[in-house]
C-alpha cells in the first residue's frame, strides 16, 4: 500500500509519523487545550438548558461504561437545534420562525461570492504584479495592503458614510463589494508569492511549445498554484464567514449574516443569555467552514511544484 507521502507525490524524507510517541503526545495535549473551547461549545449545544450552567460542569454525553460519575454526565438532546429555526418568542404563544434559515443563506451567499470574486480578481491581479511588474510595483502592492493596516473600526466610519450616500447600506451588493475589496488585499499578496515561486522557464517552455499568453496562464501557471488557491480560499472564507463589525453596521434585516443575528438572538427578550441556543447556532455555524477546510486540506498540505525544477 502506498504511504501517504507517496500518494501525494512527496519524497520519502518527510515521511508521516516519523516523530516519536513522546513528541506526538505533547502535540496532542497542546491540540486538545486548543480545541477545548470548541469542544465545550459543541457539547453545550447538545445539553438541556438546565445542565448547561450546572456546577460541577457536565463534561460528557456518556458515562463511558461507568467510568465517569453520573453528576458529570449530561443527557444529549437535539431540541436546541430545532430552537434555532423555530422558537417560542412570547411565552404561551406558538413557536414562530426565527429567520435563521435566511441568515445562514446570507452568510453562505455573501461570503462565498465575495471570497470567490476576490479570488478571481486577485489571482489575475497578482499574476500581473508578478509577471508584468509596473514601474514602482512594490508601491502599489503596499498601497493595496494599507486598508488592512488599520483596525476595522477606524476604516468603517468613512465606509458607512459613503455607503449611506450612495445607498449601498443594507444591500447584498454593498456588503459583497466591501468583503471582496477587503479579501483582495490578502488574496493578491498571497497569490503573488505563489506565482513568484514558479519557474519562469516552465512558462517559456510553453510559449515555445506554441501557447498563447492566456494559455500559459490558464494551462501552465494556474494548475501549479492550486495549493495556493485552496489556501487563500480557505483563509479568506474563514475571515469573511466570521466577520462581525462590517456586517453589524452595513447589513439590513434581509441581508443580516449569522454572526450578527447570533448576537441579537441570544441577548434579546431580557431573559439573559440563552447559552444552549448560542452554542447550537455556533455549532451549526462551524459546520460549513469545517467541511470546506476538511475537503481542501489535501491541497493545503501539498506542494504541487515540489522537486520538478532543479535550481
Amino acid at each position: 500500500m502506498a504511504t501517504l507521502a507517496e500518494k501525494f507525490g512527496l519524497r520519502k524524507a518527510s515521511g508521516v509519523g516519523e516523530a516519536g510517541w513522546g513528541h506526538t503526545l505533547i502535540v496532542a495535549l497542546v491540540s486538545l487545550i486548543y480545541f477545548l473551547p470548541v469542544l465545550m461549545i459543541i457539547f453545550t449545544a447538545f445539553k438541556p438548558s438546565a445542565q448547561a450552567l450546572s456546577v460541577p460542569p457536565t463534561l460528557s454525553p456518556t458515562s463511558l461504561f461507568g467510568l465517569i460519575p453520573d453528576q458529570f454526565v449530561f443527557t444529549p438532546t437535539l431540541e436546541n437545534f430545532g430552537q434555532v429555526f423555530n422558537r417560542v418568542m412570547v411565552s404561551g404563544s406558538a413557536a414562530e420562525p426565527t429567520g435563521f434559515d435566511v441568515f445562514f443563506f446570507n452568510s453562505f451567499f455573501i461570503s462565498s461570492v465575495s471570497v470567490l470574486l476576490a479570488l478571481v480578481i486577485g489571482t489575475l491581479a497578482s499574476y500581473g504584479f508578478s509577471r508584468y511588474p509596473l514601474k514602482g510595483n512594490d508601491t502599489y502592492l503596499f498601497i493595496i495592503l494599507t486598508t488592512r493596516m488599520l483596525p476595522a473600526i477606524v476604516v468603517i466610519i468613512p465606509i458607512i458614510l459613503m455607503f449611506r450616500t450612495v445607498g449601498l447600506s443594507g444591500s447584498y451588493l454593498g456588503i459583497i463589494m466591501l468583503y471582496t475589496a477587503f479579501n483582495l488585499a490578502f488574496t493578491i499578496w498571497m497569490m503573488k508569492s505563489f506565482f513568484d515561486e514558479l519557474s519562469y522557464d516552465v512558462e517559456d517552455a510553453a510559449r515555445i511549445d506554441g501557447s498563447s499568453e492566456i494559455k500559459v496562464f490558464m494551462k501552465i501557471c494556474l494548475p501549479q498554484v492550486v495549493a495556493g488557491l485552496a489556501a487563500t480560499f480557505v483563509f479568506g472564507l474563514i475571515l469573511t464567514w466570521n466577520e462581525f463589525l462590517f456586517a453589524l453596521l452595513l447589513t439590513g434585516v434581509d441581508t443580516r449574516t449569522v454572526p450578527v443575528a447570533m448576537n441579537q438572538a441570544v441577548s434579546s427578550g431580557g431573559r439573559g443569555t440563552d447559552w444552549t441556543l448560542l452554542a447550537s447556532i455556533e455549532t451549526l455555524f462551524l459546520i460549513p467552514v469545517f467541511l470546506v477546510t476538511f475537503f481542501l486540506q489535501n491541497h493545503l498540505l501539498r506542494g504541487v511544484t515540489f522537486g520538478t525544477v532543479k535550481r
Binding site: 522557464d201 516552465v202 517552455a205 515555445i208 511549445d209 501549479q224 515540489f306 520538478t308 525544477v309 532543479k310
Partner: peptide
C-alpha cells in the same frame, strides 16, 4: 511571434510541466 518558427528548446532547468 514565437509560434511558427519551427524552433524548440531544451532548458538547463528542464522546465517540465510539473502538474502534468
Amino acid at each position: 511571434p514565437i509560434a511558427g518558427r519551427g524552433v524548440s528548446m531544451v532548458f538547463q532547468s528542464f522546465a517540465l510541466y510539473p502538474h502534468l
